[in-house]
């Protein structure tokens, strides 16, 4: 029994170290100086921790070397763009996906299965395989390098996923409550807004987080559609640091900053996100 327990703990610890070490290393890099990072033998914990590179990104200090300041400026811009794109994407996506998910979860209409299959199919195709037509269409409609272009691309990828998740959530809500609202004098839209939406709040909260973090982390479309433009988001900006003069500490600070919003959001909304996956009539009742 004890051996089994020890084995389980060992396994958990190994997996945790395995997955947390890169995060830890990025953080260590961010608080070290470049000199320390290249010293031999390497230090796991820096002797003189510094917040210099964070300050640099937020423009609180300046470096004499304009290249480094330029890079930091570049990351700051990426942070702002990412926040803007992810915010708009998660709002619009959740709005559309909750309406769509509600309809697919609740109503029967001719062609329901087929149309839902088509929507979901867009999720099954690897993104890389449609990137060329995407690029061409965006070029044609002058959407390359624009915020709206990237937002549209993210919405196209996220709406099917969120609709699928929310459809499952809506279909678990008691139908009688919605019917009660209809009999009590609500039209379809009002019943949705006044009764179904508040009841689906945990699911919608979780879906919003999912949309935000996915858009925040998204690399491929951001890289191809916004690189080098004023709309470039954080992931391609970080990737860009590799191609410039290697600034490992700045890279570490950028990576650490990019991880903060998803970690904070998922910690705050953890119980909602868990509920989204484990939803059943019991939890709905618990919520009610």
């Amino acid at each position: 029994m004890i051996i089994k327990k020890i084995a389980i703990y060992l396994l958990v610890i190994t997996v945790s170290i395995w997955s947390l070490f890169p995060i830890f290393w990025a953080f260590i890099m961010s608080i070290s100086t470049n000199v320390e990072l290249t010293s031999v033998p390497a230090h796991i914990i820096p002797e003189k921790p510094t917040s210099h590179f964070y300050k640099l990104i937020f423009g609180l200090v300046r470096e004499e070397l304009s290249v480094i300041s330029g890079q930091a400026e570049f990351i700051k811009r990426g942070l702002i763009n990412s926040a803007f794109v992810a915010f708009i994407t998660c709002i619009t996506t959740t709005l559309i996906a909750s309406l769509g998910g509600y309809v697919f979860g609740r109503y029967n209409f001719p062609g329901k299965t087929q149309s839902f299959f088509i929507i979901l199919m867009s999720r099954m195709i690897p993104a890389i395989s449609i990137i060329v037509p995407f690029y061409y269409i965006f070029w044609k409609y002058r959407l390359l390098g624009t915020y709206q272009g990237l937002i549209i691309a993210h919405m196209a990828a996220l709406i099917p996923l969120l609709m699928w998740v929310l459809m499952g959530f809506f279909s678990t809500l008691p139908i009688e409550t919605e019917r009660a609202a209809r009999v009590d004098g609500c039209g379809r839209l009002r019943a949705f807004r006044k009764v179904m939406l508040p009841m689906a709040a945990p699911g919608i909260a979780a879906a919003t987080i999912l949309a935000f973090t996915t858009s925040w982390n998204e690399f491929l479309f951001a890289f191809l559609l916004t690189t080098g433009s004023k709309a470039q988001t954080l992931p391609p900006s970080i990737a860009g640091l590799f191609t410039m003069v290697a600034q490992y500490a700045l890279l570490g600070a950028s990576c650490t900053l990019s991880m903060i919003p998803p970690i904070v959001l998922s910690t705050i909304f953890e119980r909602y996100i868990l509920r989204l996956r484990l939803v059943d009539p019991v939890t709905v009742r618990e919520f009610s």
């Binding site: 009660a180 009999v183 709040a201």
Partner: peptide, 13 residues
């Protein structure tokens, strides 16, 4: 018309 449901269907929020 008004309706009373088997589960009462009160609005939980």
């Amino acid at each position: 018309v008004a309706m009373v449901f088997q589960s009462y269907a009160l609005y939980p929020h």
